[in-house]
Amino acid sequence: MEAFEWQQAASPENAASLATHTTTEAMLSAQGTRAAFTQAMLIKAGGVDLIGLMKDGLVSPVRLIDINHLPELQGISENAGGGFTIGALTTLAQIATHAGLMKHYPAFVQAVTTAASPQIRNRATLAGNLLQRPRCWYLRSAAHHCLRKGGEHCFAYAGDNRYHAILANHDGCAIVHPSTPATALLALQAQIESVSANGVQRVISIDDFFVLPSIDLHHENVLRTGELITAINLPAPHHTHRSAYLQLGEKTAFDWPLAAVAVFFAIDDKGICQQTRIVLGGAAPTPWRAREAERIIEGSKIDQNNARSAAEAAIAVATPLSGNAYKLPLLCTLINRTIMKAATSE
């Protein structure tokens, strides 16, 4: 790891004004494999991903702006109108043990509980988890100057793509989004609050937060330099809401899953599904809404048959690469099971 300066931000706005790049931008370089922006000043929260990237020589900032101590970014609070606000720096461990969140947003807490390891969950922040760089091994290899890092070539298409995307994967880059909590947050219609250097706050619907390669090959989300996440909002719970999350990996701990599914339903008194969000993880460059599946469930009573039809509809549109067709039956099963898990939950 290259040497760097260290500074603690006085406030979120202060941090936003000090930072010269996002980590993503600081990893971009037009040529060569060494990080281009050695003059970058980067914001560091839990640092779980950033320190790893720095150790691997993928980013070498001149200064880190630490925000981990800022009290205004911590904690979980219940809002007056229902719903919860989760400070950006709330750790995954704090979320995993929060009774209110467990009760109202099981999909989210299940996703958080299965992320990484206990040690990492004690340090990793929710915002940091959403902003972590993809696990693509070409992206994370200093020897492969790939498209997403500013190079001219995606190595995954002709290389080993067993862990890559099966959806929205033909626009130059086939990463899968690495955050599993993000799948649940997308299902649950969370909002992301941010603040900029000039103090301007904005609220971004999670529907608009993640960015596909077809829009921008170099970013996974809409956040840009000078802006940082302050909180994540979860909408008010309702007795009709159901949610569930399942993931499947090769290992049962500290392994980014091969596939993950988060679902959210609002099921009325007659058992009819009035709101449906089915989100796939490990499948696409962003957490991915399986709208074909949602259409089958929406307005129906969930049963074994339409759950399976929905799962198959989601998979019908997939475009697997040379090495990842196995994800089709895997995701199909997982969608089916997650729908049934949510539908039969209380």
Partner: peptide
């Protein structure tokens, strides 16, 4: 002990 401040430490 380092307290939150604008002070810049390092790189040395």
């Amino acid at each position: 002990i380092i307290k939150p401040s604008a002070e810049i430490f390092g790189p040395g």
